[in-house]
Amino acid sequence: MKLKKIFNNNAVLVLDQDKEKVAIGNGIAFGKRKNDLINTNKIEKLFVMKENIKLQQLLSRIPEEHFLISEEIISYAEHYLGTKLSEHIHIVLSDHVSFAIERIQEGIHLPNKLLNEIKILYRNEYDIGVWAVQHIREEYNIDVPIDEAAHIALHIHTMKLQGGDYRQTIRHTAIVREMMLFLLEEMNMNIKEDDISYQRLVTHLHFTLSRVNQYELHEMDEEMFRVIKNKFSTSYNLTLKVTEGITSKYGIQFPPSELGYITLHIERLKKC
């Protein structure tokens, strides 16, 4: 395994069996020059990625300690979730973490308006984000806002092998927040986000959007739907009001069965 390029003291590009690979290891490049042999015992991670060029560019542009702390977060996440993440996580998370550290050190804080929704919808990923925030705080002695836990959680979620598209996840989460704010205002209610009925409705709305997008819908008996519509007419009218607003703004169509389920969740929320 020959050294082809040094990115920093802990990351190098090597040639292994005619394949370019990125090798990571503590002090792996110390005292080395191009074409030197690499001690494989020093290799902690070896990347053979479709996006090797992007990874090489990233390693050349961000501080090596930013990449290493991102790798620690990724390792923690994979252990916590019990699954491997997409290889693309090594690029997107390192890039995000590096940028976050730099702007925080410059006194720039970006609040995450979707914090509460992310905390509810992606509990495990959010817990990982909280760990990551604390880890960065300790390593850099900087005041990392908890909003960063939500940003990291979304990256972790969408990099799970079946996590979904990052932009679509953001879009759905933002729409859910918009619907919840509208409903609470219309109902003149102030409910904490840790309330179980609040969390159930947030979760249902999120998966409703996912099902509508993928044409995977819960079916409800027509007679049962009529009963719900008549018995909980106030909640049903509120359901119509919020869903028609979303349909008008985003073009998302809600079938009758989903209107029935949302009505039941709103009725439950009213009893808090």
Score class of each variant (00 low, 15 high):
202 V>S: 03
49 M>H: 09
228 I>N: 01
199 Q>S: 08
24 I>R: 06
82 G>D: 04
262 I>V: 09
128 I>R: 03
111 P>M: 07
38 I>W: 01
128 I>E: 09
129 G>P: 04
193 E>S: 14
69 I>S: 08
205 L>R: 02
124 N>S: 04
210 S>F: 02
62 I>V: 15
104 I>P: 03
270 K>M: 07
199 Q>V: 10
118 I>K: 05
48 V>A: 07
87 E>Q: 14
207 F>I: 06
51 E>A: 15
13 L>V: 13
30 F>Q: 11
94 S>R: 06
10 N>L: 03
159 M>P: 06
208 T>F: 02
117 E>M: 00
208 T>D: 01
249 K>N: 10
142 I>K: 07
170 I>H: 11
253 Q>V: 08
131 W>D: 05
77 A>G: 01
10 N>D: 12
6 I>A: 02
160 K>I: 10
38 I>M: 06
15 L>H: 02
158 T>A: 10
202 V>W: 00
158 T>M: 08
118 I>E: 08
141 N>G: 06
218 H>K: 11
204 H>Q: 10
10 N>F: 06
27 G>L: 14
140 Y>L: 06
243 T>K: 00
251 G>V: 04
136 I>V: 02
245 G>I: 02
66 H>P: 11
166 Y>W: 12
120 I>V: 14
130 V>Q: 07
208 T>I: 07
206 H>E: 00
167 R>N: 14
137 R>E: 09
202 V>A: 04
145 P>Y: 05
71 E>C: 07
215 Y>R: 11
22 V>C: 05
140 Y>G: 03
162 Q>Y: 15
272 C>D: 10
268 R>L: 15
34 K>A: 07
269 L>V: 05
17 Q>E: 15
67 F>H: 11
38 I>Q: 03
270 K>W: 06
81 L>Y: 06
157 H>L: 05
144 V>Y: 06
251 G>L: 03
34 K>N: 07
252 I>G: 11
37 L>M: 12
109 H>A: 12
19 K>D: 11
42 K>A: 11
182 F>E: 14
179 M>G: 06
118 I>C: 04
12 V>A: 01
7 F>Q: 07
79 H>V: 11
96 H>V: 04
253 Q>F: 09
250 Y>V: 02
247 T>K: 08
107 G>R: 10
95 D>N: 11
64 E>L: 06
89 I>A: 00
48 V>K: 01
141 N>A: 12
187 M>W: 04
137 R>L: 01
47 F>S: 13
48 V>N: 04
40 T>P: 05
115 L>A: 08
270 K>C: 04
60 S>K: 15
216 E>T: 09
97 V>A: 07
163 G>Y: 02
157 H>D: 02
1 M>R: 07
265 H>L: 00
212 V>L: 13
80 Y>Q: 01
20 E>L: 15
12 V>R: 10
252 I>Q: 14
96 H>T: 05
